[in-house]
Nucleic acid binder design. Structure first.
Lengths: 337, 337
DNA sequence: CCTGATCTTGGGAGCGCTCCCACTGGAAGC
DNA sequence: GCTTCCAGTGGGAGCGCTCCCAAGATCAGG
């Protein structure tokens, strides 16, 4: 058995006693609220130092009805979705913004039924001061949970088919359009799309951008070749594309992972990139730089996405009503197109 | 201003009243503890359902002195360390194990001074039931914090220069040795090492494994060419290596990111891989599969690492004293060596 | 010197839950 | 028939904090 040190933490009452003041005064001094004389304030500070007092966050949470934590919920059918480096960057951004507001970050991967149930419980029990919700799919069970929740919810990316009150998104349509326009501007005329899951808003929006651009250029869009945002699915989609449309000379992939997969298929099929086929990705993750050839891709400000989500959530928690935010993308030209 | 729905949650007292029992009985029924008659148990369940009652986790935490949360703390000088997909996989594993124990996951990136201060506060205020601590460097300020903490701490990877009571690590020495032995077995005689930060135990251990293998084969190890586990640092290290030891015919990189960087440098230097130089990585992340040529690398069970850390922590929290764990690695042969 | 306004102060009532404990009544043991 | 035991029950005292409020202290203005 582990020997648990049973020494109890000092409480606010003990601090107060030691400082020769009442609990109320000690509490006020601690939260540097007004109505505390300089002398007592200092006495409290001294007692805190001597006793090594640290306030008990749980007790404070119970009294104030604020947990001091914000949750980041990532939906998905299986946990592997979270392995996408995308989320790590979101977390970096969110974490820094929450740090400023002195909130803790709870991370919930709502992949299993059990996980979803726990998220539901979290919502209903108000186990956090607010929630950032990402990666919702069409008919996602979490959508309803968020709906009925009496808790601030900020969406990362819009859910399919509805526009929530608070969200931060990236200009998916614009980014995809720009990427496709670029392919067209380089003289590509048979441009295909390897799109992401079409039960996600990002997947749909990026296909829409691709489609818009081709139509505007008087070219014919190909039907969506659907992947699931993973490298293997991109490789597979590229293989199908090559089989059905051997004359394709440009590919817009809805993210870098799938673009990397496409590159792999093209390599083994002996097609030169970008000479025979140009490839553009989306995200601008590390994989885009490491790929061979380095990927021309649509950069999206992922860390900023996380940061802004957290900031927006903090604003809502503090009683404000911020306006939704759509972050810009920009095309990063490398070698693949 | 956001309109906050002020409807209060039902409390246990209300459930008890509705069910016609005392608060004690209701509590026992809820936690399905013994000493509750079947009739009352059902009455309570009914009341819970009718009222839509959900227990208040904060109040429970205060009463039981258990927060119901475990923290994963990732140390580091700047947040970018967390962008490594490695941590995402650790989280997937930890999350699933914590889910089983019905604990929430708090994520703390202790990159800034502010972040470290908050972690310290977390430790001192017992803001979590236990902590998983990763990526400690030599003289890491968090080491002291963890030391004085009266809280279960499980380390992910050993810290430099000390062996904590509870940790889960990967067989870094063995993995590096196997990788290097493989290079030697393929006839490579001038094998260099691009090692990770030598102020981390993983960085040191992997270099040690490399060194051991060469010495055992009667070959001369080269001095460590230090990187920081990032792709650019691997590229830079490879460039230095090429300049100082033009005759190198094999490289062991301490992780896949750096191996990918090395590949990039070799490509632009016109060296063929593996014909001229063989390259082996470590981690077996997605990048290893996507790299060109696909990386031969040392696979480490990262998700299992996270899972076992969480399980170990749960064991400690429950008063047990589990023994440290060292997870095996295995060489995955692809094309680069 | 008195009145009212303002600042300090501490008592006490929660926040919503767990858990100890004293009490009941019926089954079991002698 | 009488203890003995124990499942079942509810009262009450916390857990450690915040915050309302009444009361005392201080100070200005008239």
């Amino acid at each position: 058995m582990a020997d648990v040190a049973p020494r109890r933490q000092p409480t606010l009452d003990e601090v107060a006693e030691r400082a020769g003041v009442s609990r109320s005064v000690a509490s006020r001094a601690l939260n540097n609220a007004p109505h505390v004389s300089r002398a007592k304030r200092e006495a409290v500070e001294r007692a805190v130092r001597q006793l090594g007092y640290v306030p008990n966050p749980t007790a404070r949470a119970l009294a104030t009805r604020q947990t001091g934590a914000a949750a980041l919920v990532v939906s998905g059918e299986d946990p592997s979705i979270f392995a996408d480096p995308f989320y790590a960057q979101v977390i970096v951004g969110a974490s820094s913004a929450l740090e400023e507001a002195d909130l803790h970050l709870m991370l919930c991967l709502a992949a299993s039924d059990r996980g979803r149930k726990r998220v539901r419980e979290l919502f209903r029990s108000k186990g956090a001061d607010g929630v950032m919700l990402m990666a919702l799919r069409e008919d996602d069970p979490l959508a309803a949970v968020a709906e009925e929740a009496e808790m601030p919810v900020v969406f990362g990316g819009r859910p399919v088919g509805s526009t929530p009150r608070w969200y931060v998104d990236v200009d998916n349509v614009g980014g995809a359009r720009e990427a496709t326009e670029y392919l067209v501007s380089r003289g590509r005329t048979r441009v295909a799309a390897i799109c992401g899951r079409l039960d996600t808003e990002a997947g749909r929006a990026r296909y829409r951008g691709y489609r818009d651009a081709l139509l505007a250029a008087g070219l014919e869009p190909l039907p969506p070749q659907e992947g699931d945002f993973t490298e293997p699915s991109g490789a597979a989609a590229m293989a199908v594309l090559l089989a059905h449309h051997p004359d394709v000379d440009g590919v817009f992939a809805a993210n870098d992972n799938m673009a990397a997969g496409a590159l792999r298929t093209l390599r083994s099929a002996g097609r030169a990139v970008p000479a025979d086929i140009a490839v553009v990705g989306f995200d601008d993750l590390t994989v885009a730089q490491v790929a061979d050839p380095p990927l021309t891709t649509v950069h999206q400000p992922i860390t900023a996405l996380g940061r802004e989500m957290a900031r927006m959530l903090v604003a809502v928690v503090n009683g404000h009503d911020p306006t939704p935010l759509i972050l810009p993308t920009r095309l990063v030209v490398r070698t693949s197109a």
